[in-house]
Design a protein around this nucleic acid. Structure first.
Length: 441
DNA sequence: TCTGGGGTCCTAGGACCC
DNA sequence: TCTGGGGTCCTAGGACCC
């Protein structure tokens, strides 16, 4: 903990939604929700107008729609968000060499190397106020909330106290009195599970937490977490601002609108995801030794399996083969809502073999498969033998590499639903309905 | 059809080595 | 028959963050 409030936390207000409102004037002053718009989507960001209706981040889009049906529901334009974020981070780095981005819309800055004449409260306050103005300039009108304090923890708490478009400085020496009345969840790392454990022990506020001994806390929440809480409850935090963090893993996952049951389809999707992971590894000059898959079952239980190679890889073929192999282990008969592939144990080099060649098989770049342009209600004769006998298939949905088909059977016009990878060769057999003209001809 | 996606860190148990 | 530690690596799961 420092003698001066020289740590700054900056947080762009309702970031994704604010970018949308900036770029589309008709959305200004109106509720805007950015997030997944599918049946299993969740809210990433809600504008302040939408928050008035109780719409919150991480809420299901379904729930958000019921709370605020007239909001604009947008899927997100990450290029625009990244561009705005880069402008802000570039500005921050021009102001101090010690900038630690936490996400697209948040960063810590250490003002000790920002070249200020001193670090007294009036000086850092004026600096922060000017910085907020410049953020608004480089983003063409976005607002930021800023907190200043003697540690990362305090700066972050401070930036939250006057959102949106606010500035709060916590003067050195006043940290404990600020924190004591607050709920324990103000402490980073205290989420629902930890809060519940603490609640059962009669600990609700930071003041309560301060009264608990180190041994007792470790017994309650474990060694690392317990010692962390012990110190943060006393506003003791000397974590440094770390400008560059190396990635430790790269992963891709997807949640599907309908649960998957077809193993072949799952293998196809893992293969596609392996390709995306490998491409990102190569793009960043990385390779990794441990390949993992993640499988979320219909009932939301989440399984993971991993396998570690002797030397790192960035090869699509290797990652895909391992990922598919890891799946064979698992019982997915009840249906799968999410599949994912990841690589960890990263190295910024690729193992070379005895001949000085890389171990990466000289592979073709993954084939880019365009989603088939299938219209709703396209007839799908001869999709496969089983379904051809059933009769007509109707495209029920397409996206995320999956085409879902509802089949009409003799018993029911809305028969079983089956899903296929969009690059499934069987899909190429699809053709529009045979018209009466054609039949006549 | 309640519950995203991309991450980080921690824990606990087992294997293995000295 | 009864019995050591410590350290590292790997795996699976869970909590948490934005």
């Amino acid at each position: 903990m420092r003698a001066h409030a020289s740590l700054l936390h900056l947080d762009l207000d309702a970031f994704f939604a604010a970018v949308e409102q900036r770029d589309k004037p008709s959305l200004r002053g109106k509720p805007v929700v950015v997030g997944g718009v599918g049946s299993r989507g969740v809210v990433a960001t809600a504008s302040y107008e939408a928050r008035k209706y109780g719409v919150r981040s991480a809420m299901s889009t379904r729930e958000a729609r019921s709370r605020c049906p007239h909001a604009a529901f947008l899927t997100g334009r990450f290029h625009a968000y990244r561009e705005a974020s880069t402008a802000v981070m570039t500005l921050l780095r021009s102001v101090s060499p010690l900038v630690e981005p936490l996400s697209l819309d948040e960063a810590f800055i250490d003002l000790e190397q920002a070249g200020l004449p001193d670090l007294e409260v009036p000086t850092v306050t004026a600096f922060a106020e000017e910085l907020r103005g410049r953020v608004s300039e480089v983003t063409r009108g976005l607002t930021a909330s800023v907190g200043l304090g003697t540690s990362k923890f305090i700066a972050k708490v401070a930036s939250d106290l006057d959102k949106p478009d606010g500035l709060v400085v916590v003067p050195p020496g006043t940290e404990a009195e600020l924190l004591r009345p607050m709920h324990v969840t103000v402490i980073p790392g205290v989420g629902p599970a930890t809060a519940e454990r603490l609640r059962r022990a009669g600990i609700h506020t930071v003041l309560d937490l301060e009264a608990v001994g180190l041994d007792e806390l470790v017994r309650l929440v474990g060694k690392a977490h317990g010692t962390g809480l012990f110190h943060l409850a006393r506003a003791e935090d000397d974590r440094a601002v770390v400008p560059e963090r190396e990635a430790k893993s790269v992963s891709v996952e997807g949640t599907y609108d309908t649960d998957l049951t077809d193993r072949r389809l799952m293998e196809g999707l893992l293969t596609r995801q392996a390709g995306e992971v490998a491409e990102r590894l190569r793009k960043h000059g990385l390779s990794g030794r441990t390949v993992s898959i993640k499988v979320r079952l219909h009932d939301f239980t989440t399984l993971s399996r991993s396998s570690t190679l002797h030397s790192p890889t960035d090869s699509t073929a290797t990652i895909a083969r391992l990922a598919r192999g890891l799946l064979t282990d698992l019982d997915t008969s009840g249906g799968v809502r999410l599949l994912g592939v990841g690589v960890s144990g990263l190295a910024d080099w690729i193992q070379e073999d005895l001949f000085g060649e890389t171990t990466d098989e000289a592979e073709e770049p993954p084939e880019v498969v365009e989603p088939p342009s299938i219209r709703r209600s396209t007839w799908a004769p001869g999709m496969d033998v089983e379904h051809a006998e059933m009769g007509r298939g109707w495209v029920w949905g397409a996206g995320r590499g999956v085409v879902t088909v509802r089949f009409e059977t003799a018993e029911s016009p809305a028969g079983p639903v089956r899903s296929y990878p969009e690059d499934d060769p069987q899909l190429s057999a699809w053709r529009p309905p045979v018209t009466e003209d054609e039949q006549a001809g």
